[in-house]
């Protein structure tokens, strides 16, 4: 259960940023390895790319794009908060970051299917 002192929007924004950052960090090595196949073993890369037609993989890709987008927009919010004149609308901005992430990853998903 989420402890009472944590259940508020900006704490959720924090945990979302941390989990998405860790998720991306875990995904990137696999991503780079697959890309490196283009140079070292093009045939097996083609095999992996065929996998991308699998609906499950498409949903997973949507998840990855969402993680990247939510971390990107959330990170921009934090950087704006630290570098630009203060805005009192941090909760709205955090919600906006999540909405923008859904827009980007949702568009990506619709393009893919």
């Amino acid at each position: 259960m989420i402890r009472p002192h944590r259940s508020h929007p900006l704490w959720f924004a924090f945990i979302l940023h941390r989990l998405s950052g860790l998720g991306l960090a875990l995904f990137l090595p696999a991503h780079f390895y697959l890309l490196s196949l283009a140079l070292t073993a093009p045939e097996s890369l083609d095999g992996y790319l065929a996998l991308a037609e699998n609906p499950l993989v498409k949903v997973a890709e949507f998840g990855l794009v969402f993680l990247l987008a939510v971390h990107f927009f959330g990170g921009l919010r934090l950087m704006a908060m630290e570098w630009l004149p203060w805005s009192g609308r941090q909760k709205s901005l955090a919600a906006g970051a999540v909405a923008a992430a859904f827009l980007v990853s949702g568009t990506f998903f619709l393009q893919a299917v």
Binding site: H5, R6, H8, L10, W11, F14, R18
Partner: peptide
């Protein structure tokens, strides 16, 4: 600080 904002909230 990770800008969790619990300080400001409470």
């Amino acid at each position: 600080c990770h800008s969790q904002g619990s300080c400001t909230l409470f």
